[in-house]
Design a protein around this nucleic acid. Structure first.
Length: 424
RNA sequence: GGUGAGGUGGGUGAGAGGCUGAAACCAACAGUUUGCUAAACUGUCGUACGGGAAACUGUACCGCGGGUUCGAAUCCCGCCCUCACCGCCA
Protein backbone atom coordinates (compact mmCIF):
# COMPACT_ATOMS: atom_id res chain seq x y z
CA UNK A 1 0.00 0.00 0.00
CA UNK A 2 1.38 3.38 -0.98
CA UNK A 3 1.44 6.16 1.57
CA UNK A 4 -1.01 9.00 1.16
CA UNK A 5 1.66 11.54 1.97
CA UNK A 6 3.96 10.03 -0.65
CA UNK A 7 1.17 10.20 -3.18
CA UNK A 8 0.47 13.81 -2.29
CA UNK A 9 4.09 14.77 -2.86
CA UNK A 10 4.90 12.54 -5.84
CA UNK A 11 1.68 12.44 -7.77
CA UNK A 12 3.18 12.79 -11.24
CA UNK A 13 5.97 10.28 -10.65
CA UNK A 14 3.53 7.71 -9.35
CA UNK A 15 1.16 8.08 -12.28
CA UNK A 16 4.02 7.92 -14.79
CA UNK A 17 5.69 4.99 -13.06
CA UNK A 18 2.55 2.91 -12.92
CA UNK A 19 2.05 3.19 -16.66
CA UNK A 20 4.87 0.68 -16.95
CA UNK A 21 2.43 -1.90 -15.69
CA UNK A 22 0.97 -2.53 -19.10
CA UNK A 23 -0.26 1.01 -19.50
CA UNK A 24 -2.14 1.15 -16.20
CA UNK A 25 -3.68 4.55 -15.70
CA UNK A 26 -4.35 5.57 -12.11
CA UNK A 27 -4.62 9.30 -12.67
CA UNK A 28 -8.33 9.40 -11.94
CA UNK A 29 -8.07 7.30 -8.81
CA UNK A 30 -5.19 9.39 -7.55
CA UNK A 31 -7.09 12.59 -8.20
CA UNK A 32 -10.08 11.23 -6.26
CA UNK A 33 -7.85 10.13 -3.48
CA UNK A 34 -6.11 13.47 -3.13
CA UNK A 35 -9.44 15.24 -3.09
CA UNK A 36 -10.66 12.98 -0.33
CA UNK A 37 -7.42 13.53 1.52
CA UNK A 38 -7.86 17.29 1.29
CA UNK A 39 -11.37 16.92 2.60
CA UNK A 40 -10.19 14.66 5.37
CA UNK A 41 -7.67 17.19 6.57
CA UNK A 42 -10.20 20.00 6.55
CA UNK A 43 -12.64 17.90 8.51
CA UNK A 44 -9.97 16.96 10.99
CA UNK A 45 -9.08 20.58 11.62
CA UNK A 46 -12.68 21.41 12.24
CA UNK A 47 -13.18 18.42 14.47
CA UNK A 48 -10.01 19.04 16.47
CA UNK A 49 -11.04 22.61 17.19
CA UNK A 50 -14.42 21.40 18.33
CA UNK A 51 -13.01 18.71 20.57
CA UNK A 52 -10.53 21.16 22.02
CA UNK A 53 -13.44 23.37 23.04
CA UNK A 54 -15.26 20.39 24.45
CA UNK A 55 -12.26 19.48 26.58
CA UNK A 56 -12.06 23.05 27.77
CA UNK A 57 -15.71 23.00 28.81
CA UNK A 58 -15.27 19.78 30.70
CA UNK A 59 -12.41 21.33 32.65
CA UNK A 60 -14.38 24.46 33.42
CA UNK A 61 -17.43 22.54 34.52
CA UNK A 62 -15.30 20.54 36.89
CA UNK A 63 -13.81 23.68 38.37
CA UNK A 64 -17.20 25.36 38.70
CA UNK A 65 -18.67 22.40 40.53
CA UNK A 66 -15.74 22.39 42.87
CA UNK A 67 -16.26 26.10 43.50
CA UNK A 68 -19.92 25.41 44.17
CA UNK A 69 -21.20 27.35 41.15
CA UNK A 70 -23.65 24.76 39.88
CA UNK A 71 -25.79 27.22 37.89
CA UNK A 72 -22.90 28.37 35.70
CA UNK A 73 -21.81 24.82 35.22
CA UNK A 74 -25.22 23.83 33.93
CA UNK A 75 -25.09 26.57 31.33
CA UNK A 76 -21.88 25.19 29.95
CA UNK A 77 -23.33 21.73 29.81
CA UNK A 78 -25.81 22.93 27.23
CA UNK A 79 -23.05 24.09 24.92
CA UNK A 80 -21.34 20.78 25.32
CA UNK A 81 -24.41 18.90 24.12
CA UNK A 82 -24.43 20.88 20.89
CA UNK A 83 -20.75 20.28 20.30
CA UNK A 84 -21.27 16.61 20.76
CA UNK A 85 -23.84 16.38 17.99
CA UNK A 86 -21.69 18.33 15.60
CA UNK A 87 -18.60 16.33 16.48
CA UNK A 88 -20.40 13.10 15.79
CA UNK A 89 -21.27 14.22 12.27
CA UNK A 90 -17.71 15.29 11.61
CA UNK A 91 -16.35 12.04 12.97
CA UNK A 92 -18.58 10.10 10.62
CA UNK A 93 -17.36 12.21 7.72
CA UNK A 94 -13.75 11.61 8.70
CA UNK A 95 -14.27 7.91 8.92
CA UNK A 96 -16.06 7.79 5.59
CA UNK A 97 -13.25 9.71 3.91
CA UNK A 98 -10.61 7.50 5.49
CA UNK A 99 -12.38 4.38 4.32
CA UNK A 100 -12.71 5.66 0.80
CA UNK A 101 -9.05 6.61 0.77
CA UNK A 102 -8.06 3.18 1.99
CA UNK A 103 -10.26 1.46 -0.57
CA UNK A 104 -8.58 3.40 -3.34
CA UNK A 105 -5.13 2.69 -1.94
CA UNK A 106 -5.89 -1.03 -1.97
CA UNK A 107 -6.39 -0.88 -5.72
CA UNK A 108 -3.12 0.88 -6.53
CA UNK A 109 -0.13 -1.42 -7.00
CA UNK A 110 3.43 -0.54 -6.13
CA UNK A 111 5.32 1.84 -8.38
CA UNK A 112 7.98 -0.01 -10.40
CA UNK A 113 11.55 1.02 -9.76
CA UNK A 114 13.07 3.29 -12.39
CA UNK A 115 15.13 0.43 -13.83
CA UNK A 116 11.97 -1.54 -14.58
CA UNK A 117 10.83 -1.47 -18.19
CA UNK A 118 7.39 -0.95 -19.55
CA UNK A 119 5.66 -4.21 -20.46
CA UNK A 120 2.35 -5.94 -20.89
CA UNK A 121 3.18 -9.41 -19.66
CA UNK A 122 5.66 -12.28 -19.56
CA UNK A 123 6.80 -11.76 -23.15
CA UNK A 124 8.27 -8.39 -22.24
CA UNK A 125 10.54 -9.62 -19.46
CA UNK A 126 14.27 -9.17 -20.00
CA UNK A 127 16.80 -11.92 -19.55
CA UNK A 128 19.65 -10.40 -17.58
CA UNK A 129 21.73 -13.49 -16.96
CA UNK A 130 22.02 -17.01 -18.33
CA UNK A 131 24.20 -19.76 -17.02
CA UNK A 132 25.00 -23.31 -18.06
CA UNK A 133 24.21 -25.10 -21.22
CA UNK A 134 21.01 -27.01 -21.76
CA UNK A 135 21.77 -30.71 -21.91
CA UNK A 136 20.84 -32.64 -25.02
CA UNK A 137 19.04 -35.75 -23.98
CA UNK A 138 18.65 -38.93 -26.00
CA UNK A 139 15.32 -39.49 -27.69
CA UNK A 140 14.43 -41.99 -25.00
CA UNK A 141 14.57 -39.30 -22.29
CA UNK A 142 11.54 -39.10 -20.04
CA UNK A 143 9.69 -36.20 -18.43
CA UNK A 144 9.97 -36.09 -14.64
CA UNK A 145 6.53 -37.54 -13.96
CA UNK A 146 7.50 -40.68 -15.81
CA UNK A 147 10.87 -40.82 -14.11
CA UNK A 148 9.11 -40.40 -10.79
CA UNK A 149 7.02 -43.45 -11.59
CA UNK A 150 9.89 -45.46 -13.04
CA UNK A 151 12.02 -45.05 -9.91
CA UNK A 152 9.03 -45.00 -7.53
CA UNK A 153 9.85 -41.55 -6.19
CA UNK A 154 6.54 -39.73 -6.30
CA UNK A 155 3.00 -41.08 -6.28
CA UNK A 156 0.51 -38.64 -7.70
CA UNK A 157 -2.42 -41.07 -7.79
CA UNK A 158 -2.02 -41.86 -4.12
CA UNK A 159 -2.23 -38.14 -3.41
CA UNK A 160 -5.47 -37.97 -5.35
CA UNK A 161 -6.88 -40.83 -3.31
CA UNK A 162 -5.93 -39.39 0.05
CA UNK A 163 -6.44 -35.69 -0.64
CA UNK A 164 -6.90 -34.62 -4.24
CA UNK A 165 -5.00 -33.54 -7.32
CA UNK A 166 -1.95 -31.46 -6.60
CA UNK A 167 -1.09 -33.17 -3.33
CA UNK A 168 1.49 -35.81 -4.23
CA UNK A 169 3.14 -38.35 -2.00
CA UNK A 170 6.93 -38.44 -2.14
CA UNK A 171 8.27 -41.85 -1.44
CA UNK A 172 11.55 -43.61 -0.67
CA UNK A 173 14.47 -41.81 -2.29
CA UNK A 174 12.00 -39.24 -3.58
CA UNK A 175 11.08 -38.30 -0.02
CA UNK A 176 14.71 -38.39 1.02
CA UNK A 177 15.64 -36.10 -1.82
CA UNK A 178 13.04 -33.59 -0.60
CA UNK A 179 14.46 -33.70 2.91
CA UNK A 180 17.99 -33.30 1.56
CA UNK A 181 17.09 -30.28 -0.54
CA UNK A 182 15.37 -28.55 2.37
CA UNK A 183 18.33 -29.21 4.59
CA UNK A 184 20.81 -28.05 1.97
CA UNK A 185 18.89 -24.82 1.27
CA UNK A 186 18.57 -24.01 4.97
CA UNK A 187 22.23 -24.73 5.61
CA UNK A 188 23.26 -22.37 2.85
CA UNK A 189 20.86 -19.68 4.07
CA UNK A 190 22.27 -20.00 7.57
CA UNK A 191 25.77 -19.63 6.16
CA UNK A 192 24.64 -16.46 4.40
CA UNK A 193 23.54 -14.98 7.72
CA UNK A 194 19.81 -15.66 7.66
CA UNK A 195 18.31 -16.58 11.01
CA UNK A 196 16.28 -19.73 10.68
CA UNK A 197 12.67 -19.81 11.81
CA UNK A 198 10.18 -22.61 11.97
CA UNK A 199 6.94 -20.75 11.49
CA UNK A 200 3.25 -21.45 11.98
CA UNK A 201 1.58 -22.79 8.86
CA UNK A 202 -1.71 -21.09 9.65
CA UNK A 203 -1.99 -17.37 10.10
CA UNK A 204 -4.68 -14.95 11.21
CA UNK A 205 -6.33 -12.33 9.05
CA UNK A 206 -4.10 -9.52 10.35
CA UNK A 207 -1.07 -11.33 9.01
CA UNK A 208 -2.72 -12.02 5.68
CA UNK A 209 -3.45 -8.35 5.47
CA UNK A 210 0.06 -7.33 6.50
CA UNK A 211 1.75 -9.05 3.59
CA UNK A 212 -1.01 -8.19 1.15
CA UNK A 213 -2.79 -11.49 0.53
CA UNK A 214 -5.89 -9.91 2.03
CA UNK A 215 -8.24 -8.36 1.28
CA UNK A 216 -7.70 -9.05 -2.42
CA UNK A 217 -6.32 -12.49 -3.02
CA UNK A 218 -8.16 -14.49 -0.42
CA UNK A 219 -9.29 -16.92 -3.10
CA UNK A 220 -5.69 -18.08 -3.37
CA UNK A 221 -5.50 -19.26 0.23
CA UNK A 222 -7.07 -22.21 1.97
CA UNK A 223 -9.19 -21.03 4.86
CA UNK A 224 -10.28 -22.68 8.09
CA UNK A 225 -13.48 -20.79 8.91
CA UNK A 226 -14.06 -22.35 12.32
CA UNK A 227 -10.93 -20.67 13.56
CA UNK A 228 -10.60 -17.79 11.12
CA UNK A 229 -7.15 -18.97 10.04
CA UNK A 230 -5.52 -19.16 6.63
CA UNK A 231 -3.03 -21.76 5.42
CA UNK A 232 0.07 -19.94 4.33
CA UNK A 233 0.75 -19.68 0.59
CA UNK A 234 4.41 -18.94 1.37
CA UNK A 235 6.66 -18.59 4.41
CA UNK A 236 6.87 -14.92 3.53
CA UNK A 237 3.58 -14.43 5.34
CA UNK A 238 4.46 -15.67 8.83
CA UNK A 239 8.10 -14.60 8.65
CA UNK A 240 7.50 -11.06 7.46
CA UNK A 241 4.66 -10.65 9.95
CA UNK A 242 7.09 -11.28 12.78
CA UNK A 243 7.98 -7.66 12.19
CA UNK A 244 4.48 -6.26 11.97
CA UNK A 245 4.03 -3.21 14.22
CA UNK A 246 7.71 -3.18 15.04
CA UNK A 247 10.07 -0.22 15.18
CA UNK A 248 13.64 -1.40 14.70
CA UNK A 249 16.80 0.54 15.37
CA UNK A 250 18.70 1.50 12.24
CA UNK A 251 21.71 -0.43 13.58
CA UNK A 252 19.69 -3.64 13.54
CA UNK A 253 19.26 -3.47 9.78
CA UNK A 254 19.38 -5.45 7.68
CA UNK A 255 17.39 -8.16 9.44
CA UNK A 256 17.82 -11.46 7.63
CA UNK A 257 15.44 -14.33 8.24
CA UNK A 258 14.75 -17.61 6.52
CA UNK A 259 12.49 -20.56 6.95
CA UNK A 260 11.31 -23.76 5.41
CA UNK A 261 7.58 -24.34 5.16
CA UNK A 262 5.13 -26.23 3.05
CA UNK A 263 3.11 -23.77 0.99
CA UNK A 264 -0.57 -24.15 0.22
CA UNK A 265 -2.18 -22.64 -2.82
CA UNK A 266 -5.67 -23.17 -4.12
CA UNK A 267 -4.60 -22.20 -7.63
CA UNK A 268 -8.23 -21.67 -8.46
CA UNK A 269 -8.75 -21.37 -12.20
CA UNK A 270 -5.32 -22.58 -13.24
CA UNK A 271 -6.26 -26.12 -14.13
CA UNK A 272 -5.39 -27.59 -17.49
CA UNK A 273 -2.27 -25.64 -18.30
CA UNK A 274 1.27 -26.55 -17.31
CA UNK A 275 0.03 -28.51 -14.36
CA UNK A 276 1.46 -31.93 -15.15
CA UNK A 277 3.62 -33.61 -12.61
CA UNK A 278 5.39 -31.22 -10.30
CA UNK A 279 4.88 -28.12 -12.40
CA UNK A 280 2.05 -26.74 -10.32
CA UNK A 281 0.83 -28.11 -6.99
CA UNK A 282 -1.55 -27.21 -4.21
CA UNK A 283 1.03 -28.10 -1.61
CA UNK A 284 4.76 -27.76 -2.09
CA UNK A 285 7.89 -27.16 -0.08
CA UNK A 286 9.94 -24.02 -0.15
CA UNK A 287 12.74 -22.29 1.69
CA UNK A 288 12.20 -18.57 1.78
CA UNK A 289 14.65 -15.80 2.56
CA UNK A 290 13.46 -12.44 3.86
CA UNK A 291 15.25 -9.19 4.54
CA UNK A 292 14.20 -6.02 6.30
CA UNK A 293 16.39 -3.26 4.98
CA UNK A 294 17.31 0.36 5.24
CA UNK A 295 15.93 2.09 2.11
CA UNK A 296 19.46 3.13 1.09
CA UNK A 297 20.58 -0.48 1.12
CA UNK A 298 17.64 -2.38 -0.24
CA UNK A 299 18.77 -2.58 -3.85
CA UNK A 300 22.27 -3.75 -3.07
CA UNK A 301 20.70 -6.36 -0.80
CA UNK A 302 18.41 -7.44 -3.62
CA UNK A 303 21.53 -8.15 -5.69
CA UNK A 304 22.96 -10.06 -2.77
CA UNK A 305 19.83 -12.18 -2.65
CA UNK A 306 19.95 -12.78 -6.36
CA UNK A 307 23.55 -13.94 -6.02
CA UNK A 308 22.52 -16.25 -3.19
CA UNK A 309 19.79 -17.85 -5.28
CA UNK A 310 21.88 -18.21 -8.43
CA UNK A 311 24.70 -19.58 -6.28
CA UNK A 312 22.43 -22.44 -5.26
CA UNK A 313 21.49 -23.12 -8.86
CA UNK A 314 25.15 -23.17 -9.89
CA UNK A 315 25.98 -25.61 -7.13
CA UNK A 316 23.13 -27.81 -8.25
CA UNK A 317 24.53 -27.55 -11.78
CA UNK A 318 21.22 -26.58 -13.25
CA UNK A 319 21.11 -24.37 -16.32
CA UNK A 320 19.26 -21.24 -15.37
CA UNK A 321 18.36 -17.77 -16.49
CA UNK A 322 17.46 -14.67 -14.54
CA UNK A 323 14.64 -12.47 -15.75
CA UNK A 324 14.04 -8.92 -14.76
CA UNK A 325 10.29 -8.69 -14.84
CA UNK A 326 8.69 -5.93 -16.80
CA UNK A 327 6.10 -3.67 -15.25
CA UNK A 328 3.22 -5.71 -16.58
CA UNK A 329 4.38 -9.02 -15.13
CA UNK A 330 5.37 -7.90 -11.66
CA UNK A 331 3.33 -8.72 -8.60
CA UNK A 332 1.04 -6.13 -7.09
CA UNK A 333 3.31 -5.27 -4.17
CA UNK A 334 6.67 -5.45 -5.89
CA UNK A 335 8.84 -2.58 -7.08
CA UNK A 336 11.46 -4.82 -8.63
CA UNK A 337 11.41 -8.56 -9.26
CA UNK A 338 13.90 -11.08 -10.55
CA UNK A 339 12.55 -14.46 -11.58
CA UNK A 340 14.97 -17.35 -11.68
CA UNK A 341 14.11 -20.15 -14.06
CA UNK A 342 15.78 -23.51 -14.58
CA UNK A 343 15.69 -25.41 -17.80
CA UNK A 344 13.86 -28.67 -17.59
CA UNK A 345 15.47 -30.65 -20.37
CA UNK A 346 12.87 -33.30 -21.14
CA UNK A 347 9.95 -30.90 -21.09
CA UNK A 348 12.17 -28.40 -22.89
CA UNK A 349 10.73 -25.70 -20.73
CA UNK A 350 11.95 -22.97 -18.42
CA UNK A 351 10.47 -23.40 -14.98
CA UNK A 352 10.28 -20.61 -12.42
CA UNK A 353 11.97 -21.71 -9.20
CA UNK A 354 12.45 -18.39 -7.47
CA UNK A 355 10.99 -14.94 -7.46
CA UNK A 356 13.09 -12.42 -5.63
CA UNK A 357 11.64 -9.00 -5.01
CA UNK A 358 12.14 -5.66 -3.39
CA UNK A 359 8.85 -4.31 -2.11
CA UNK A 360 10.43 -1.09 -0.95
CA UNK A 361 8.05 0.48 1.59
CA UNK A 362 4.85 -0.93 0.10
CA UNK A 363 4.52 -3.91 2.41
CA UNK A 364 6.10 -2.08 5.34
CA UNK A 365 3.35 0.52 5.15
CA UNK A 366 0.74 -2.13 5.74
CA UNK A 367 2.82 -3.90 8.31
CA UNK A 368 3.71 -0.67 10.09
CA UNK A 369 7.27 -1.95 9.97
CA UNK A 370 9.56 0.93 10.71
CA UNK A 371 13.05 1.80 11.82
CA UNK A 372 14.48 4.72 13.70
CA UNK A 373 17.75 6.51 13.13
CA UNK A 374 18.98 8.16 16.31
CA UNK A 375 16.03 10.01 17.81
CA UNK A 376 14.47 10.90 14.47
CA UNK A 377 10.90 10.00 13.65
CA UNK A 378 10.39 6.37 12.64
CA UNK A 379 10.49 5.70 8.91
CA UNK A 380 9.18 2.78 6.91
CA UNK A 381 11.71 0.05 6.26
CA UNK A 382 12.05 -1.79 2.98
CA UNK A 383 11.14 -5.46 2.75
CA UNK A 384 12.59 -8.01 0.38
CA UNK A 385 12.04 -11.68 -0.09
CA UNK A 386 12.91 -14.52 -2.37
CA UNK A 387 12.51 -18.23 -2.76
CA UNK A 388 15.74 -20.03 -2.07
CA UNK A 389 14.33 -22.26 -3.35
CA UNK A 390 10.98 -23.80 -4.25
CA UNK A 391 11.42 -27.56 -4.41
CA UNK A 392 9.11 -29.17 -6.95
CA UNK A 393 10.48 -27.64 -10.10
CA UNK A 394 14.04 -28.09 -8.89
CA UNK A 395 13.23 -31.75 -8.45
CA UNK A 396 11.64 -31.85 -11.88
CA UNK A 397 14.74 -30.37 -13.49
CA UNK A 398 17.12 -32.55 -11.50
CA UNK A 399 15.31 -35.70 -12.52
CA UNK A 400 15.04 -34.77 -16.16
CA UNK A 401 18.46 -33.23 -16.68
CA UNK A 402 20.40 -35.80 -14.72
CA UNK A 403 18.82 -38.95 -16.14
CA UNK A 404 21.31 -41.47 -17.52
CA UNK A 405 20.98 -45.05 -18.64
CA UNK A 406 22.34 -46.01 -15.21
CA UNK A 407 19.97 -43.87 -13.21
CA UNK A 408 19.56 -40.33 -11.95
CA UNK A 409 22.76 -38.65 -10.83
CA UNK A 410 22.53 -36.60 -7.62
CA UNK A 411 24.56 -33.35 -7.74
CA UNK A 412 27.68 -33.55 -5.62
CA UNK A 413 26.64 -30.80 -3.17
CA UNK A 414 23.55 -32.77 -2.27
CA UNK A 415 25.24 -36.09 -1.61
CA UNK A 416 26.19 -35.22 2.00
CA UNK A 417 22.49 -34.51 2.56
CA UNK A 418 20.97 -37.44 0.68
CA UNK A 419 23.49 -40.08 1.60
CA UNK A 420 23.26 -41.49 -1.91
CA UNK A 421 24.69 -40.29 -5.22
CA UNK A 422 22.45 -42.01 -7.71
CA UNK A 423 18.86 -43.12 -7.95
CA UNK A 424 18.49 -46.47 -9.65
C1' G B 1 -14.31 -28.80 26.50
C1' G B 2 -14.98 -26.85 31.99
C1' U B 3 -13.65 -23.19 35.70
C1' G B 4 -11.12 -18.94 37.26
C1' A B 5 -7.90 -14.58 36.54
C1' G B 6 -6.37 -10.82 33.49
C1' G B 7 -5.33 -7.48 29.06
C1' U B 8 -2.10 -0.08 30.77
C1' G B 9 4.22 2.70 27.41
C1' G B 10 10.35 -1.61 25.16
C1' G B 11 9.62 -4.71 30.11
C1' U B 12 7.61 -5.16 35.31
C1' G B 13 3.56 -2.65 37.28
C1' A B 14 0.52 1.49 39.86
C1' G B 15 -3.85 4.16 38.80
C1' A B 16 -10.49 2.65 40.32
C1' G B 17 -14.61 9.25 37.20
C1' G B 18 -11.57 15.54 36.34
C1' C B 19 -5.12 17.75 38.69
C1' U B 20 -3.22 11.12 34.09
C1' G B 21 -0.38 10.46 27.82
C1' A B 22 -0.47 8.02 32.22
C1' A B 23 3.39 7.08 39.08
C1' A B 24 7.50 4.07 40.29
C1' C B 25 11.18 0.71 38.93
C1' C B 26 13.99 -1.77 35.05
C1' A B 27 15.88 -1.44 30.18
C1' A B 28 17.59 2.10 26.43
C1' C B 29 19.93 6.76 24.92
C1' A B 30 22.88 11.38 25.99
C1' G B 31 25.96 13.77 29.50
C1' U B 32 28.93 14.49 34.30
C1' U B 33 32.51 12.00 37.24
C1' U B 34 36.66 8.36 36.25
C1' G B 35 43.53 6.23 34.11
C1' C B 36 39.96 2.19 31.54
C1' U B 37 35.61 -0.62 32.73
C1' A B 38 31.99 -0.63 36.34
C1' A B 39 29.27 2.12 39.85
C1' A B 40 27.03 6.73 41.10
C1' C B 41 24.66 11.17 39.60
C1' U B 42 21.91 14.41 35.91
C1' G B 43 18.90 14.65 31.76
C1' U B 44 16.07 12.42 27.65
C1' C B 45 12.92 8.59 26.78
C1' G B 46 5.19 6.33 23.12
C1' U B 47 2.65 6.44 18.36
C1' A B 48 -0.49 8.45 14.63
C1' C B 49 -2.99 12.37 12.19
C1' G B 50 -3.46 17.80 11.82
C1' G B 51 -1.58 23.24 12.19
C1' G B 52 3.16 25.89 11.94
C1' A B 53 9.28 28.07 8.28
C1' A B 54 10.50 26.74 13.15
C1' A B 55 10.13 26.93 18.36
C1' C B 56 5.98 24.86 19.40
C1' U B 57 0.99 23.39 19.34
C1' G B 58 -4.24 20.74 18.69
C1' U B 59 -6.62 16.01 18.58
C1' A B 60 -6.87 10.76 19.19
C1' C B 61 -5.07 6.32 21.37
C1' C B 62 -4.56 2.33 28.38
C1' G B 63 -7.06 -5.27 23.88
C1' C B 64 -11.40 -4.02 20.11
C1' G B 65 -16.41 -1.91 19.39
C1' G B 66 -20.55 0.51 21.52
C1' G B 67 -22.97 3.11 25.83
C1' U B 68 -23.52 6.35 30.43
C1' U B 69 -21.41 11.39 31.78
C1' C B 70 -20.12 18.33 31.14
C1' G B 71 -15.81 14.90 31.68
C1' A B 72 -13.90 7.65 31.11
C1' A B 73 -7.66 3.97 31.41
C1' U B 74 -11.29 4.16 35.58
C1' C B 75 -18.58 2.82 35.40
C1' C B 76 -22.08 -0.36 32.00
C1' C B 77 -22.87 -3.81 27.61
C1' G B 78 -20.90 -6.89 23.60
C1' C B 79 -16.68 -9.10 21.28
C1' C B 80 -11.55 -10.70 20.86
C1' C B 81 -7.21 -12.41 23.02
C1' U B 82 -3.84 -14.20 26.84
C1' C B 83 -2.68 -16.78 31.24
C1' A B 84 -3.66 -20.48 35.27
C1' C B 85 -5.96 -24.98 36.95
C1' C B 86 -8.92 -29.40 35.62
C1' G B 87 -10.25 -32.85 31.58
C1' C B 88 -8.52 -34.88 26.88
C1' C B 89 -4.21 -35.60 23.90
C1' A B 90 0.83 -35.48 20.28
Amino acid sequence: MLQTLFLRENKATVIEGLKKRGGLDVSERVADLLMLDEKRRQTQQELDTLLARSNEIAREVGNLFKAGKAAEANELKAESAQIKDHAKTLEEQMEAAENEIRNILFTIPNVPNERIQFGNGPDDNETVETHGSTPTLPASALPHWELARKYDLIDFELGVKVTGAGFPFYKGKGAQLQRALISYFLTRANQAGYTEYQAPLLVNADSGFGTGQLPDKEGQMYFAPEDGLYLIPTAEVPITNIFRDVILKAEQLPVKACGYTPCFRREAGSYGKDVRGLNRLHQFDKVEIVQIAHPDQSYSLLEEMRAHVTGLLKELQLPYRVLRLCGGDMGFASAFTYDMEVFSAAQEKWLEVSSTSNFEAFQANRLKLRFREGDAKPKLAHTLNGSALALPRIVAALLENNQTPDGIIIPEVLVPFTGFSIIQ
